[in-house]
Each structure stands twice: as structure tokens, then as C-alpha cells.
Design a protein around this nucleic acid. Structure first.
Lengths: 146, 146
DNA sequence: GTGCTTGCAAACAGTTTGCAGATAG
DNA sequence: CTATCTGCAAACTGTTTGCAAGCAC
């Protein structure tokens, strides 16, 4: 996402439209989500918000993330053995590159997913609604250190 | 896997080779894994084993699954919002089709994954070790009922 | 003023672990 | 015989929920 301010406005408006209230805690989270280039965890977002609103609770972070998820404005990457990560810049399914050593997550360019999805749908009889593609490996930095 | 017996022997031998002991509980789990066509959860395997060995504990199922995972003989599919599933027939990464309604998991045919993986590796500088590709949708049966 | 939102703490679910007794080799 | 394995129960972790007090509108 190139313009964090615009994205923030977009998210704020969407919340308002759905009848949700704007609170300082939500504003802070929305700003973080809008500005974040990476794939922060709920705990990470919580730490950053606490710097501005020391009394904010993790539960509130989760509650707002759930809201954004339901509105389709945030993509949740669930991991069974690690905490979940959130992407508010690209809230649609897209591939991820996950470093198994430093846990960094990045977004590679992959083109053929739509073709692949259609192919699977046709062959299986499924109605495909979403997908998830993760590559696990060592990022360039960790390869050097390995 | 076409021959459950052969697969069972294979798994049993591998355990023995690594110096692990064969117990009735492990044998029962290995047989289930070897025969299973689907993607059972630990709890599901546990229920089936209890029918033969009523005193078996879930912890033992997990401990043996961990062993098989470490030996690369079982593929674990972790879900952050559901229990993990295990595939002892195809213990290598392969795509999955997951029905969001009935939670059935099946294995579609997808060819291009190796090409895609190499492409990503070249473009990103990562050393790619593994991957995971899941499609979420409605299976043919659930589409009708929808 | 009304009722959505917050923050706390307790609950939750699946998985893992510690340990004493049982057992495979 | 001895080290591994089992079964139980407690611990663990990230996430969710119930509820009284607070605040947006």
C-alpha cells in the first residue's frame, strides 16, 4: 500500500459505514495496519499501540482485528505453531515466503494463481472461495548466516 | 498409498532402524496411518485406537506422531482454528482442497508446483525448503446442500 | 442517555511436558 | 536388567469470552 493515510481513511470510513464507533484505540490500530509494510502479529501491534495508549488491552486488539477480518479489510495468516500474522495492505489471498529461521514473511510475485485455481475447480467440482500458498525456506540473510 | 500392509512394514522398519521400540499402541497407530486414505486428526486417530486399546492416551498418539513427523514419514497440516491433520500416505508437500463447510480434505492433481517453486526461489533469493498450498471452498456435496 | 466498547481476568482448545510405574528388547 | 514408553494430569500458548465500568455519538 503506497499511501497509509488514504488507507487509514478508507478503513475508518468502512467502520463508520457499518455502524461501528471510532475509539482512540481503534484509530491507533487502524493507523498501524494502514502503515505497516510487513505482517505483524497481534502481540506486535499491541506492543506498538501500548506506546501511545498504555492501558490498551490485547483483547481489544483482537476484537478490532476480528472486525476488520469480517469486513474483508485484513488478511489473517494463521499458524498452528506460532502466533497469527495480519496483512492490512493486501487483504486478499496472495503467496507468502516465510523464513523458517528468522520468521520474516514477504510477498513474492506469482502470476499463475488464477489459472491454477480455475484448473483445480474444474477438475474437482469444488467451488473455490479462497486459497493459501506459503513457501518455507531461508531468506538471503539467513542463508549467509547458516 | 495402495498397499497399507507394505506401508505399515515400511514405517515399522524405519522406527526399528532408529532404535525406537515397537509397542502395541504404536503398532495400532502405524496401521491406522498406513491404511488411512484421508487426513485424520490426532483426536480421530485416538478414538480409533481406543477401540483396540482402551487405555491408550492421547499423549501417546501425539508422541508417536511427533516421531513420524521427525522421520519425515507423516505430513502434518496445522490449522490455527482447528485441530491438525495428518497424512501418512503422501508425507511430502502437496496441495489440498479443504471444504469450508464439512471440513473434508482431498488431494487435487496439480502439476506446476516445482516450476513455481523454482521461479520463486530464483526471483527472491530464498532457498526454498518446503511449501504449502491449500484451496478453500465447497465440495460438490456441500454445494448441493448450500 | 443509550448501548457499543474497553480492560481485566477467567475460560478455552489443542498440544506438550513431567513424572512414576510398566514393559520391550 | 535397563532404558524407553505409557498414561495421567498439569502446564502451556495464543485466542476468545463474560462482565462491570467507561465513553462515543
Amino acid at each position: 500500500m503506497r499511501d497509509p493515510d488514504a488507507r487509514f481513511q478508507q478503513l475508518a470510513l468502512k467502520l463508520k459505514d457499518r455502524g461501528y464507533r471510532m475509539t482512540p484505540q481503534r484509530a491507533a490500530l487502524l493507523r498501524l495496519i494502514a502503515a505497516s509494510e510487513g505482517h505483524p502479529s497481534a502481540a506486535h501491534l499491541y506492543e506498538q499501540i501500548k506506546a501511545q495508549f498504555p492501558t490498551t488491552s490485547l483483547a481489544t486488539v483482537y476484537k478490532t482485528l476480528t472486525l476488520l477480518k469480517e469486513m474483508g479489510e485484513v488478511l489473517e495468516l494463521g499458524f498452528s505453531d506460532d502466533d497469527n500474522r495480519y496483512d492490512g495492505s493486501r487483504p486478499y489471498p496472495h503467496p507468502h515466503l516465510i523464513c523458517v529461521r528468522c520468521h520474516k514473511i514477504s510477498d513474492p510475485d506469482v502470476r499463475h494463481m488464477d489459472d491454477l485455481t480455475e484448473e483445480i475447480a474444474a477438475a474437482s467440482g469444488y467451488e473455490i472461495l479462497s486459497h493459501r500458498l506459503d513457501f518455507y525456506g531461508l531468506c538471503p540473510e539467513c542463508r549467509q548466516r547458516a
